[in-house]
C-alpha cells in the first residue's frame, strides 16, 4: 500500500532522512520506534506531503500512485489520514467543524453518527463546539485527533505519538479504537486498512497489535523485526544496543 524507496529528505537545508526504505502492505500495521530527534515525525510529515519537507531523492508510492510531488490534500483524498502529535489551535473553527471537514460534509450540523463516535471517546456533545485544540489537554488533543480520523475513515493511517500525555484510563480506550480503525479486530485475511504508529515510549503497543516494528536512528531505519522482540530489546538495552543486536543477527 505504501512503498518508500531510497528516500532522502531535507528540512531547512538540513538532511534529516537518508536513503530510507519502508514498505507497508494492505492490512498491515507497522510501528516505528526511535529516540527523540531521529526523524520519525519528519518521515510522517514527508509521507503526508508538508511543503517544508523537501524530497531530495527517492520516491513515495501510495496505492500504486507516485505521490512524491502531490499536495497534502490530494494524498488525503487517496485515502491517507493522520493523528498529529501537536496539532495547531484554530480560533473560530470548532472540533465539530473539523469533523465535518474530515467527513467531507459542507453543512454546519454535526452528523448523528459522529455524536455517537464522540460519546465512545468520552467526548461530550458540548465539546464539539469548542475551538479546535484551544485549551485542550494532552489527552483531549489525542481524542480529538482520533475522532476526526473516525469521521474521515481513511485506508492508511499514521499516528504520531498517540500515547504521549494520555492518562492510563484513556490509553486503553484510544488503543481499542485505533485497533478498530486499523481492522485489527478482523481476521488477517479480511484486513484492508493499514497503519504506521510512531511511538517513543512504546506504551500504546500494549493495547494494539502490530505486524512489524522498525527502529529509526539518525534518519534511517536501522533495524526491523517482530514487534514483541524489538519492544523487548528496546526495554532491556535501549535503542542503540537494540540495533546492534539486530545487526548481529
Amino acid at each position: 500500500m505504501l512503498e518508500i524507496e531510497n528516500l532522502t529528505v531535507e528540512v531547512a537545508g538540513k538532511e534529516i532522512l537518508r536513503d530510507l526504505y519502508l514498505n507497508i502492505e494492505r492490512g498491515e500495521v507497522h510501528v516505528l520506534f526511535g529516540p527523540n530527534g531521529c526523524g520519525k515525525t519528519t518521515l510522517l510529515l514527508t509521507i503526508l506531503g508538508f511543503p517544508a519537507y523537501k524530497v531530495k531523492s527517492g520516491s513515495i508510492k501510495f496505492k500504486g500512485v507516485d505521490i512524491t510531488n502531490l499536495p497534502t490534500n490530494e494524498r488525503v483524498k487517496l485515502g491517507m489520514g493522520v493523528s498529529f502529535q501537536h496539532p495547531p489551535q484554530i480560533r473560530g473553527v470548532t472540533l465539530g467543524d473539523m469533523v465535518n471537514i474530515a467527513q467531507g460534509r459542507s453543512e454546519a450540523a454535526i452528523d448523528e453518527g459522529v455524536i455517537e463516535l464522540a460519546a465512545r471517546l468520552n467526548i461530550p456533545y458540548e465539546f464539539l463546539s469548542r475551538d479546535v485544540n484551544l485549551g485542550f489537554s494532552g489527552g483531549e488533543v489525542k481524542r480529538s485527533e482520533i475522532l476526526q480520523l473516525m469521521a474521515q475513515s481513511p485506508e492508511f493511517i499514521m499516528f504520531d505519538e498517540p500515547d504521549s500525555g494520555v492518562d492510563v484510563g484513556n490509553i486503553e480506550l484510544i488503543g481499542g479504537i485505533m485497533s478498530e480503525l486499523l481492522d485489527r479486530n478482523k481476521l488477517p485475511s479480511k484486513r484492508v486498512r493499514a497503519g504506521l504508529i510512531i511511538t517513543h515510549s512504546g506504551f500504546i503497543m500494549r493495547y494494539i497489535k502490530a505486524d512489524r516494528a522498525h527502529v529509526m536512528l539518525e534518519g534511517s531505519i536501522a533495524c526491523s523485526g517482530m514487534p514483541d522482540e524489538i519492544t523487548k530489546n528496546i526495554m532491556e538495552v535501549g535503542f542503540e544496543k537494540c540495533v546492534e543486536k539486530c545487526k548481529v543477527k
Binding site: 499536495p71 490534500n73 493522520v82 498529529f84 473560530g92 467543524d97 471537514i101 475551538d131
Partner: peptide, 29 residues
C-alpha cells in the same frame, strides 16, 4: 494566517484555498 493551520486543514482533505477560507471565517466568527 498560520501556515500550520492551513496544513492541518489540508491534512483533513481541504485544498489550500478552502483551508484559507475556513480560517478566515473562523477568525471572523
Amino acid at each position: 494566517i498560520a501556515e500550520e493551520a492551513i496544513l492541518y486543514l489540508m491534512a483533513r482533505g481541504l485544498s489550500e484555498e478552502e483551508a484559507t477560507s475556513v480560517i478566515i471565517r473562523g477568525f471572523l466568527n
